[in-house]
Design a protein around this nucleic acid. Sequence first.
DNA 1: TAAAAATACTCCATAGGTATTTTAT
DNA 2: ATAAAATACCTATGGAGTATTTTTA
Lengths: 323, 323
Amino acid sequence: MITLKQLRYFAAVARQRHFGRAAAECHVSQPALSLQIQELESFLGTQLVERRRNAVALTEAGRDIAERAGRILMEAQDLVDHARHRPSVLTGRLELGVIPSIAPYLLPATLPRLQENYPGLDIGLRETQTATLLGDLVDGRLDVALLSLPVERPGLESLHLFDDAFILVLPSAPGGDEAALTPEAVLSGESLLLLEEGHCLRDQALSFCGATSLGSRRQYGASSLSTIMQMVANGFGATLLPAMALPIELRPDMPVRLFRFAAPEPSRSIGLVWRKSSARKSDFHALARILAEIGNALAEPREGSAPIEPEALRMPSPQRRAS
Amino acid sequence: MITLKQLRYFAAVARQRHFGRAAAECHVSQPALSLQIQELESFLGTQLVERRRNAVALTEAGRDIAERAGRILMEAQDLVDHARHRPSVLTGRLELGVIPSIAPYLLPATLPRLQENYPGLDIGLRETQTATLLGDLVDGRLDVALLSLPVERPGLESLHLFDDAFILVLPSAPGGDEAALTPEAVLSGESLLLLEEGHCLRDQALSFCGATSLGSRRQYGASSLSTIMQMVANGFGATLLPAMALPIELRPDMPVRLFRFAAPEPSRSIGLVWRKSSARKSDFHALARILAEIGNALAEPREGSAPIEPEALRMPSPQRRAS
DNA sequence: TAAAAATACTCCATAGGTATTTTAT
DNA sequence: ATAAAATACCTATGGAGTATTTTTA
């Protein structure tokens, strides 16, 4: 079979019309080049150059082949150039999966930042529950997923970004009557409003409360935290809200009381997950940097960053099992 | 630098999505292929494939490179195919030079035959005197020349095609008075009508006659045999006409007498000349076959093939020096 | 444990170098 | 005689093979 080297040498001969000069151009000795040309001619079964006294002339076949060789060599060079100058970090299509209890709170601030910092990035978004995301990940339909850790699944590896504390949200009874729904009552599992089955947030909340049977609370399964917050505000029960959701879900004048737990504060761990075999780990770390920065600002609000500063809950935190 | 082999192996991996199968497709061992892929990746500075449990997936760069590699490999295959299936004999452009005392007699029958037998042949014609033809030949402006041999010039080689006898043409004096211009008188150099300077035919005729000085005969130098024949027919003198010109130059009822010489008959040798270094010798031999066939038919006319059968000249032939 | 790719190593083909010969003018 | 390409011959690189290890699910 022919080789690119033969084509390179022959192209040089076609340019120089002289074996010696062509060899010099290729930085090899004249016999080395001569031999490759002979081999090319022999393989092609055609004489390509006419050896004359002071120069070589291309045969008709030689002209044709030289032209084709030039094209091929140019395309090979293009291939190398494109491979080498391919911008290495966060460019091209990136399929990103996000769970529903993160997407609406983290992405609005993240996506513009990504577009700004990585104009070559083309993000494909998929918002669905953890189990689906992980399946898509191992099957290659997703490149990376943003969800709540831990994730233990063969072939995947994850990176912790930040912790997102759970805030206890109670309805504020009219007239200051707070006896009806105390933090203690909520944490025993009564009147806790949760997302529907399949959301990791639901499982995490139940774990905090040490509840084992769901019983009558199944009826409260909602499909979004917005709905749950509306229900809390209307006195249907309490909920555990991720801190990152507060700035968006806590509407002005919403009649609720917020409680942070005493340390060790219960929280969920937000992280990125990808295939161990992925070739884009540097991309994911660049993405992680931005997500962590934005996430930290959202999840651990300082003075003035949250509309209402929650009271501290006096009782001990439940065992932390969701981080 | 990258090699076609690397591209071939990588293209196989892209097709098979499996190193082992790709190696089998390439008829090499898996480590051999693995190594070439690694080398390609290393040279390109990019990971091309994502090694997974049961298959390999192309990275974004890998998809791009695989596509380019496929194109390059296809073009390389095209190059080989074109070189190998290039019709080997008498195709493409052929620059042919012919001297003026051959062209009008041999080409009218030859060119149609060539077009018929070699439809892929594209002939470029140049009609000029021997010296010019040979210069163009060594400079590469001509591929082959049809002329009168011998040609002794470094770098050129020639092939004899056929002999073209010289016919003595005398005016037929009105009333059968043939004394005025006898063959003997003509051959002593008197009243011989010749082509102008530079035509080999002129020199050959003079050689036959043993003439050394041109003297007053210079005034008769003509630029075509047609002109000379008209002059002979009008009694201005005699000439030596190549036999191949007879069918065309001897118009009906032309008042001339024809004499063939006794053996050894004087003649010119018609042949092909080309560069020793030319790569198209098989072409030239194919061309020679056709030219010799047509030339023999023209130059050695049998019964009925010439309008007038020439008489035999009784006197001995002059020394043959032009063949 | 099993499947797949990577590594270790050995060997041989081949590309390349230097010196020399051949060829053509 | 000279210039250029071809050939001879040697060396060293590299590509390929087998056997083995590593990796990962």
